[in-house]
Design a binder for these strands. Structure first.
Lengths: 135, 135
DNA sequence: CAGGATCCAAATTGATACTG
DNA sequence: CAGTATCAATTTGGATCCTG
């Protein structure tokens, strides 16, 4: 089983970051960190996957769909997602109050990126975890 | 500017998770969370981007390349990455000690997933962050 | 040189109660 | 209903010192 030992190597140099700055390990890491911070948070992914159906969801519906979350955390994480442009908030000026949340278009566009992560996870078994990629 | 309001919708139902369990928002979220936990940590991405050249790097070289990190954190994050199968550790039984780290093949395979995240970030401006994706 | 051990500060999360 | 306020617990990160 002789492999060319070449097909896996990757060329990050082929791209510059989104501000057009020259690529360095530091800038690249900072860019990805900024993205991950949007997704980090105990409940954000759970919320996002609830919203991936593209529909609007009431606050109370999300509470029911995610029984383990507290009101405080649900509200906090939703507000952060809203601030980051991932979800949108609709307030209906009624009594009793009614607030709905849905993904923005950018939020919906997260799907392929999450799929890429799942693909990576799936490769875990096929790629020899034990052997190093370097010589 | 009339859009069909349809082209963005995404179909997560088309896939099952990597254990073949039926797809639910909960299982999907848990899967992605497990992946993000591998990347979370104040210094992991910085370390990974140092290693993406595919070479072996000495502990002291990483320390020098990442001046802000403490020895403790560098060691800790490297051990976690090793435990998770992303990096490999080479110990040279010498005096003074010499330890090198490099990515595993699976670690190298992370690149496309990170690229997908960067692509998502780049879409932020083009996709109307203000408008909801739902009706 | 490459860390392990200890102690401490900061950030995150959770439980509970209260409100327009 | 959809939050906010407060306090406590947990988790995480960092500074410093020690060692084979």
């Amino acid at each position: 089983m002789t492999r060319t030992d070449k097909q896996v190597r990757y060329e990050p140099k082929s791209k510059v970051d989104r501000e057009g700055r020259p690529y360095t390990p530091q800038t690249a890491a900072a860019d990805v960190e900024a993205i991950l911070k949007v997704l980090e948070g105990r409940w954000k992914l759970v919320i996002l996957f609830q919203l991936f159906d593209g529909e609007r969801h009431r606050f109370s519906d999300l509470e029911r769909a995610i029984p383990a979350v507290s009101q405080k955390m649900l509200a906090q994480q939703l507000r952060q997602l809203e601030r980051d442009g991932v979800v949108r908030r609709f307030v209906h000026p009624e009594v009793p109050p009614k607030v709905e949340y849905c993904l923005t278009e950018w939020g919906l566009a997260l799907c392929p990126a999450l799929d890429a992560m799942l693909v990576w996870a799936a490769q875990r078994e096929v790629l020899s975890g034990g052997s190093g990629a370097c010589r």
